[in-house]
Amino acid sequence: TEYKLVVVGAGGVGKSALTIQLIQNHFVDEYDPTIEDSYRKQVVIDGETCLLDILDTAGQEEYSAMRDQYMRTGEGFLCVFAINNTKSFEDIHQYREQIKRVKDSDDVPMVLVGNKCDLAARTVESRQAQDLARSYGIPYIETSAKTRQGVEDAFYTLVREIRQH
């Protein structure tokens, strides 16, 4: 089974770092803004072998026109913010609204991801993020692309959301 996953969120929150940590098991430290990259990885989730087709997208506003296209083809979405960047957390709402509009559905598989949880300088409390996820009816997972904490959990949870859909 193949799953088309799309990673969305503001610029600099760590979308590529999360994806590369999942696929290649290493942490990319330097920031190089993405336009669009796709990665494929075969994994076993709950005993089922599946192929993850992951689209890593641009957070930069100037590429926002490309969003409709990949939102149409994606089956599930990782909505990523950084726990030390309140603005990126506030941006999640717009991504969710755009996904709902493009998919013409209120019920699209999504996982809210709070990345950079290895950093002490948190400005978005776990509780705020949990409340937001609960209001959307989606899971919330904290990750660190640096330490790998929660990385597999985030992507695998999204696959489970798609399966249950």
Rank of each mutant, 00 (worst) to 15 (best):
P139R: 07
G137F: 03
A133S: 05
V43T: 08
Q128E: 11
I92T: 05
K116Y: 14
D104R: 11
S144T: 14
M66S: 13
T86I: 12
M71E: 08
R101P: 03
H26S: 13
S144L: 02
D46M: 08
M110H: 00
L52H: 00
C117M: 08
S16M: 00
A129H: 04
T86R: 13
Q164L: 04
F89C: 07
L119G: 15
E61F: 15
D107E: 08
D37L: 00
T57Q: 03
P139I: 07
D106P: 09
Y3Q: 06
D37M: 00
Q164P: 06
D153A: 08
D37G: 00
Y136E: 09
S135G: 05
S64M: 08
E36F: 03
G11M: 11
C117F: 10
K15F: 01
N25M: 08
P139A: 08
Y140N: 01
V8G: 02
K103S: 08
E90L: 11
D37C: 00
E142T: 04
D37W: 00
D131Q: 12
L112K: 00
I138C: 09
T147N: 13
I99K: 03
T157W: 14
L132H: 05
G11D: 10
V80A: 04
L119S: 15
D56H: 00
E125G: 10
Q98P: 01
Q24M: 08
F77W: 05
A65T: 12
P33E: 03
A133R: 03
V102C: 12
K103F: 14
L55V: 08
P139W: 03
E142M: 04
T123H: 09
K116I: 14
M110C: 03
V113W: 00
G12R: 10
N115Q: 14
V111R: 02
V80L: 09
S126T: 10
S144C: 15
D131F: 05
L112T: 01
I20M: 03
K87W: 06
F27Y: 13
S64V: 11
E161W: 11
E125Q: 10
D106K: 06
E125F: 07
S135H: 10
G59C: 03
M110F: 11
V102G: 06
T34M: 00
S64H: 13
I20V: 12
I141G: 02
S38C: 07
A58C: 06
E36V: 01
R67M: 15
Q149V: 07
A82D: 15
Q149F: 10
Y31V: 02
G14Q: 01
R134W: 03
V124L: 10
E30W: 02
L55D: 14
R127V: 11
A58Y: 02
D106W: 12
I92A: 06
Y140I: 07
R122G: 13
Y156V: 14
Y3A: 06
E152R: 08
D46T: 05
E2K: 03
V13W: 00
S126H: 11
I92D: 02
S126I: 11
D107G: 09
A58T: 11
Q21T: 10
Q42N: 06
E152G: 07
E2G: 04
